[in-house]
Design a protein around this nucleic acid. Structure first.
Lengths: 204, 204
DNA sequence: GTCTATACACTGATAGAC
DNA sequence: GTCTATCAGTGTATAGAC
């Protein structure tokens, strides 16, 4: 249990980095275990399969992301009702503020890619870990947009999610203009996303 | 040239079906060539690599899709200026109306998946084949939304594209409600997409 | 030109020795 | 827990048949 924990962590660290840089299929277990300095078979011993390793990499980050999103929502509602823009900010900001060990923005890309992929098992896993957060925000949005039917609302949320996912997957890449710092770039991105999503959701 | 054409076509047909059902990495060349009734090596002979085969599958459809989108835009402008909703309809409708040989909706999923993936070489290919269409629509949108800066407009178009891509990737899947026909479902989808995108683009 | 058989270097997974 | 050896499966390349 003592040495196994460090092996596990070494694998997870190397996996996150390599998955972000080369994609899930692009990063092989042999590259990954070599980078982590562990034996190839250790992955299957500790995680059972490559797919389960992918899920574990996500779980570490998603647990924290979900917590931060809900906390941000609570904070927005602390002093009375939250505006639509505040709710959207609470949803978007934590995702763009993820920063692991300098590779945070890379992880955002992986997260977005995973969400965009329609791999059934991975989607199921994400919906299990994401589900309650999405439902919480959906409830909040339903309150703020009473003119929308339930069906219409779900459509809008789905479209909004698509836009955000798409934007997030590009965040941290080429898009950053020259001479613009990381923090400033992030604020710009958040502002654009919130403005677009709010307008789309408010449509008659 | 005579028999090679049928072999080429058989590979392309089987590829489109299998890529749609199992993804690019999920469908192996051995499954694919077995389904097409051709030899494994025929893929490399006719296309050079699996990646190039993927591109060819797209090119067949995209050429037609691009033409239809531009034609729809011209039609919308035939009797004077086109509204924002008409421009968006011209962009969205042809994508959802693709119908190859009964597997049209499957191809939409593949197209959306490809667009969502940030594989560099595939993206470059898509932008080369899609580029001029996107620029044409961007010009049209710039005319209809003069209050937006160029930078703001590109942001909005990117977000809109993300939303549409995400929605398209789900089109033809589980989402169709019971008792709703294909045509009716498509009209509903188009209406939702146009409404959301128009509102997002019009945001102040 | 078109097609095929075959081999090569990879992949993820697993059984079994230590 | 860890490691070696080995498995079936993958994309790719090529020599040679027609």
């Amino acid at each position: 249990m003592t040495s196994s924990a460090t092996t596990r962590e070494r694998i997870l660290g190397a996996a996150e980095k390599l998955f972000a840089r080369r994609g899930f299929d692009g990063a092989s277990l042999r590259q990954l275990t070599a980078a982590a300095g562990v034996n190839l078979a250790a992955v299957n011993y500790h995680f059972g399969s490559k797919e389960r390793l992918v899920e574990e990499v996500f779980r570490r980050r998603l647990d924290r992301l979900n917590t931060q999103r809900l906390a941000a929502l609570d904070r927005a509602k602390a002093h009375g009702e939250a505006s639509l823009e505040q709710v959207l900010d609470a949803f978007i900001r934590p995702a763009l503020e993820i920063d692991g060990h300098g590779d945070g923005s890379l992880f955002v890309r992986v997260l977005a890619r995973a969400f965009a992929e329609h791999d059934d098992s991975l989607r199921r896993f994400l919906s299990e870990n994401y589900g309650h957060v999405m439902r919480r925000f959906a409830t909040e949005l339903a309150r703020l947009l009473p003119h929308l039917s339930r069906e219409e609302l779900y459509w809008r949320i789905d479209l909004m999610t698509g836009a955000l996912t798409h934007a997030m997957s590009g965040f941290g890449m080429i898009r950053r203009r020259e001479g613009v710092g990381e923090a400033e770039h992030r604020e710009e991105t958040i502002a654009h996303l919130v403005r677009f999503a709010a307008a789309g959701l408010r449509a008659p």
